[in-house]
Design a protein around this nucleic acid. Structure first.
Length: 371
DNA sequence: GAAGCGTGGTC
DNA sequence: TGACCAAGCTT
């Protein structure tokens, strides 16, 4: 059963949490001030991404784009390159869109209310709450995975946190518990707690500053919370990857503006299901013939494709697991009329924004993706 | 409201 | 190796 707290308990919890935070808060690059631009960029980078991963990206990003104005005017290719390796690349594109909104609608000055913040591209309920509370001291919850985990344990809340409607339950509870005088510190303290004593795996509730408030721990049920339904595992998707080299460089494909890895460049990737091979099991040599015809149809290139051997390159995403089988050929360069790609000299490859699967293909060839 | 969207770390 | 997990948002 969900525990409820008295007003007295709420006050004691706030003091205990904030006293601990004042002593133990992590010193992070984006915590040097409360500039909304700094808070915003860090919060977007931290979505589904760990602190240690974000730190070097954040530092580089601030040198490249020091202000909202710089970001609004950013070159999209430079922006994607700065985000390369962080994943969820729509975050980067939304950052630029939101920066343009701030310049156009607010003369470059950040709006302060959660409602106005949520109207900016890429800012949802969590990020709006984080910016409003941390940068502007607005007493609103910032309900992220940490808040779900911490409060589900403190109060033994059994609602499934994987379900969208569960957010309201937590938002309402945290709205009552949040410290009205220090909402930003309160929200950040919950996050620090969630990434130290109250982690998902191997938590240490025994030494937590708020263990007296942790009902799940007191009942010996720390790991029973949060309740979270499972997601299906990613499905296998077989691909062919083409290593086509000419005197003008490698054949590279631009992945368009929507869907997986939008805006990125890779060696041409063909979903084997798109080759319409029927249900028969296809041998590598036979597959090579089909791909050769496909390549000719799409690019006009005539090439004698050879399977490159070795295991398929594997790339796991949230919903798919790509298995990329490599085929290669040396050809004479020709103009690519309607194919969305270009010949790229090896010396220019590193200037493009390259996703991990492309890095892995290059590594297989013994190429250095950084030059 | 479910599904799509990346990558790196951990056990 | 597989199965989660990590400061979610958009459609």
């Amino acid at each position: 059963m969900t525990v409820t707290w008295s007003n007295q308990q709420i006050k004691e919890f706030r003091k205990t949490l904030l006293d601990w935070y004042d002593e133990e808060r992590r010193d992070l690059p984006w915590r040097q001030d409360h500039d909304p631009y700094h808070v915003w960029i860090s919060e977007i980078m931290l979505q589904q991404t760990q602190v240690n991963t974000v730190i070097p990206y954040y530092t580089r990003f601030m040198k490249l784009f020091p202000t909202v104005s710089d970001l609004a005017n950013a070159d999209e290719a430079v922006l994607l390159k700065a985000w390369e390796g962080l994943g969820y690349y729509s975050r980067a594109k939304n950052l630029k869109r939101a920066a343009q909104q701030i310049m156009a609608d607010y003369q470059g000055v950040f709006p302060e209310t959660p409602e106005a913040l949520e109207d900016l591209a890429g800012i949802g309920p969590y990020t709006a709450g984080a910016i409003a509370s941390i940068a502007f001291n607005v007493p609103v919850p910032a309900v992220d995975g940490n808040a779900f985990r911490v409060f589900s344990r403190l109060m033994e809340i059994e609602a499934d946190i994987a379900k969208p409607q569960t957010r309201k339950i937590f938002t309402d509870i945290i709205a009552k518990v949040i410290d009205p005088d220090r909402p930003g510190d309160f929200n950040q303290a919950i996050m620090d707690l969630g990434s130290s004593y109250m982690t998902a795996k191997n938590p240490d509730p025994e030494h937590s500053p708020v263990k007296a408030f942790d009902q799940a721990y007191l009942d010996g049920k720390e790991l029973d919370f949060p309740v979270k339904s499972k997601k299906p595992k990613p499905v296998d998707v077989p691909y062919v990857g083409l290593i086509i080299r000419s005197e003008r460089g490698y054949l590279m494909q631009h992945r368009g503006t929507t869907g997986m890895l939008a805006g990125f460049w890779t060696f041409p990737l063909i979903k084997i299901a798109d080759l319409d091979l029927g249900d028969d099991v296809v041998m590598a040599t036979e597959l090579a013939q089909h791909v050769t015809e496909y390549l000719h149809r799409e690019t006009g290139i005539t090439a004698e494709l050879t399977p490159m051997g070795g295991r398929a390159i594997t790339q796991v995403y949230t919903h798919q697991k790509w298995q990329v089988n490599l085929f290669g050929a040396e050809v004479l360069a020709q103009d690519l009329s309607h194919f969305p790609g270009e010949w790229v000299p090896q010396s220019n490859l590193a200037k493009l924004a390259l996703p991990k699967v492309q890095i892995k293909m290059m590594n297989r060839l013994g190429m250095d993706p950084t030059k």
